[in-house]
Write a protein that binds this DNA or RNA. Structure first.
Lengths: 262, 262
DNA sequence: AGTGTACGTATACATCGTAAATATACGAAG
DNA sequence: CTTCGTATATTTACGATGTATACGTACACT
């Protein structure tokens, strides 16, 4: 029975090349494509398998299960971020965000990273909820390497700002919270309401109680607007001003400045 | 056969009172209980029905489907927030958060609302992801009334700070982003890692690449800490300082101050 | 008493994640 | 070339899920 591999009726001619069709990269990439195109709810094992010309169970070699696959999507997002950062650093130095009052290098670079992260998220709106449900549920050391490298990048910049470990950790949390929350807020209604030209009316606001909620009614049009990278940078600056004691211009310009004022 | 209700084999004695067993309140409350106890994944129609002593399909009278039920959970969270705010405002006036430099009333009250929202979220950690996946996906006017009232409350305070509609909307977005992001970050690892006394090691950090990621490795213990309402207030203050042009002390103390400086 | 209607049940189906066993194709050794 | 080990993909099957549809049943009102 085990021996009967060759001649019988089993083999088909077109089977050639069916061996190495899959890879973790291909699986994650097409999974992200499906999510981008049809939303998170459309991603099922069978669907993804079909998209790759493969049965559903074949995917379990490249992701331990559906949850692991979703974690893989988070990883894919952060790898895209790393691609962007690497490409931009190859072209030119970090851009100065504001020419009038020159910020320290760490601050400019932090803005740069935040901005690119935001742009990656906007490129995959349907995948963003995964950042809340999966990334934050994973216990840090089990997060994908790309995520850990992102943390490291930010922490290095904060150390260059002269913060000690505790202050850097606090600021890193504030950075993450702001970036994540900002992405969520900017993404709202952009996902399932892609075609609303007139903001106030098409949102069904006319049915909103007229005498109640007067401020909300007045501000609805403004609330539906998006601030883009400008608002992201403004809030980040405000938070950093609150977190970094002085201007954050480290006296020792580079390398190890291990002694912050306590 | 239809008539044979009385003596025969058909009716059971305990059927009395099976009529009004359910209500939207009861459904949402027990749904939230299930989620709090066993997590979001444990909430299924059949499970929730069983918890209420009812078939699964009975729930469809009180929620149009599973998604609507999850939206209902968000509503339940905001109704709990309103309960808390109402109860506290009945007991005493709004507490002064900082006695040294007295803040304007609107600012103190905004801190109060943010703090209570944060506390409600911490009381239902498993339900928090719904705030990202459901609440922000719903197009504002379709959000539950309790959510809209929350928006109104915040907008009123921002108007009292002297902001015009556009600035109030911007600040409201910043407020929402910070509050939401902060809750997410504080909640991380609190959900599925409830028993980690020694933070650095039990997180599996020892497997983290030792020579790479030195800053991350050094700051891991600090990163696992939680700042609670203190950190929430600090970041909110920083953001408000960036958003509100002057100190935000409205010249007309109370009531309608419709003319902000433009 | 009779009847309409609000409420809950019963049954059924497509789809989902995935465990287990099986078939197939390539690399290397004989 | 044959043969085998192993990496790869398929097949089959099972329980659970969301929900459409049809049906019973109990209360309110006349």
């Amino acid at each position: 029975m085990t021996r009967e591999t060759g001649q019988g009726a089993g083999r088909r001619a077109g089977d050639r090349g069916r061996y190495g069709r899959l890879s973790r990269e291909r699986v994650l990439a097409t999974a992200l494509e499906v999510v981008d195109r049809e939303g998170l709810g459309a991603l099922s094992m069978r669907r993804l398998g079909a998209e790759l010309g493969v049965e559903a169970m074949a995917l379990y070699r490249y992701a331990a299960g559906k949850e692991a696959l979703l974690d893989g999507l988070v990883e894919a997002l952060y790898m895209e971020l790393e691609d962007v950062l690497a490409a931009e650093s190859r072209e030119a130095g970090p851009p100065t965000v504001n020419a009038s009052r020159p910020s320290p290098a760490w601050r400019t670079e932090l803005h740069h990273i935040a901005r690119e992260t935001y742009l990656v998220a906007l490129r995959h709106p349907h995948a963003v909820p995964l950042l809340a449900t999966r990334m934050l549920a994973v216990p840090l050391a089990r997060r994908p390497p790309a995520v850990l490298r992102d943390h490291e990048r930010v922490l290095v910049l904060l150390q260059q700002a002269g913060l000690d470990d505790a202050a850097a950790a606090r600021t890193h949390r504030a950075y993450t919270a702001w970036l994540l929350g900002y992405v969520f807020v900017e993404l709202r209604a952009m996902v399932d309401a892609p075609d609303e030209s007139d903001p106030a009316f098409r949102l069904g606001l006319h049915r909103m109680s007229a005498q109640e909620l007067p401020r909300l009614r007045a501000a609805t049009a403004d609330l539906a607007e998006r601030e883009g990278t400008k608002g992201l940078a403004a809030g980040l600056d405000a938070l950093l001003d609150g977190c970094v004691p002085n201007g954050g211009d480290s006296p020792a310009a580079d390398g190890a400045a291990p002694g912050p004022p306590r």
